[in-house]
Write a protein that binds this DNA or RNA. Structure first.
Length: 292
DNA sequence: CCCCAGTCCTGCGGGC
DNA sequence: TGCCCGCAGGACTGGG
């Protein structure tokens, strides 16, 4: 039983629902402010994708008032007084900050705001896979309407969840990541949720019993809500930060993610295993989460 | 429609 | 000591 005790090393938690919801709450102070300046800092890195082009974006958001700050799955949406929206998509390493960023090199956009408690809003992105978009209501609907983005994981009912995923042959862990079926879950929380639900990650969706769907749904809510209370997960590479550039602390409460070889905290007997599903790591306890 | 592999990008750790 | 390679995974795309 010489189980290797491994430490997660380059694990970098990515903004999923709890992290993006924490970002949203962190920038609520931008509501009712006016965008007075728009800056695109020069950088030695490849520029990130901005829609429309930067000049048009700057011209169209200048002097607009931010009416609301919303979350759409893993994206932050600022509703402007002309009905258009600014959408920030953090993807792997994007952050929305009201405080000083982790470094100046990776600031992609800086908005100066007037009239509220928040005077700057910055989009910071180390890897640069994130996107920034200014969209009309029609563009928003066609890109991220209900046909493209499923119901939010905090809002979906167990019936809806089962209706959307229940007939699929795909492994439950892979299906939970499909944003068109269910919005907000990413690789980290999928493993955590299935562990709490005591469901094996490789179980095909159509094989889950009604009881298991109930457990998955309940675990999804409890894990996501608990993670929001701890302001999300900041792993060893420290990438994810809140709007105030502080670390989240849910990583201290992870049960399986990035804990390969460590003893399962639920049964205290088996070692956490790591497998690859759809080219992504999945972590689970083979004792607590049985296939049959 | 369903499902999977490949692509984008930077930083970091391990191996040599 | 430094270089190279693999890995991290969200969203999208193209193919079977």
């Amino acid at each position: 039983m010489g189980m290797p005790l491994q430490r997660g090393t380059k694990g970098g938690s990515v903004p999923e629902l709890p992290e993006v919801e924490t970002m949203r709450r962190g920038v609520l102070g931008a509501i009712s402010t006016t965008i007075t300046e728009v800056h695109w800092p020069k950088s030695r890195f490849k520029p990130i994708q901005v829609t429309p082009r930067r000049n048009a974006f700057s011209r169209r958001v200048a002097r607009r008032v931010i009416r609301a700050v919303e979350r759409l799955g893993k994206r932050i949406v600022l509703r402007l007084d002309d009905e258009n929206v600014i959408a920030f998509e953090p993807r792997m390493t994007g952050l929305l900050l009201t405080a000083d960023p982790p470094d100046d090199d990776h600031v992609r956009l800086l908005l100066k705001l007037q009239g509220g408690s928040v005077s700057t809003l910055q989009f910071w992105d180390r890897r640069g896979l994130g996107t920034i978009s200014l969209l009309t209501p029609a563009q928003l609907a066609s890109r991220w309407g209900p046909e493209k983005v499923g119901p939010d994981a905090l809002v979906v009912t167990v019936g809806e969840l089962r209706q959307r995923l229940g007939r699929r042959q795909t492994a439950i862990k892979v299906a939970l990541l499909d944003q068109a079926s269910l919005a907000g879950i990413g690789n980290l929380y999928a493993s955590e949720i299935l562990h709490v639900a005591l469901v094996h990650p490789e179980l095909p969706c159509r094989r889950l019993s009604a009881r298991q769907w109930k457990r998955v749904h309940a675990a999804m809510l409890s894990v996501l809500q608990e993670a929001i209370r701890y302001e999300g997960s900041t792993l060893s590479d420290g990438t994810y930060r809140t709007a105030l550039n502080s670390a989240g602390s849910y990583q201290h409460h992870h049960r399986v993610y990035d804990r390969e070889g460590q003893t399962c905290p639920t049964c205290a007997r088996s070692a956490i295993r790591r497998i690859i599903q759809s080219q992504r790591s999945t972590f689970f306890c083979p004792r607590c989460q049985r296939k049959r």
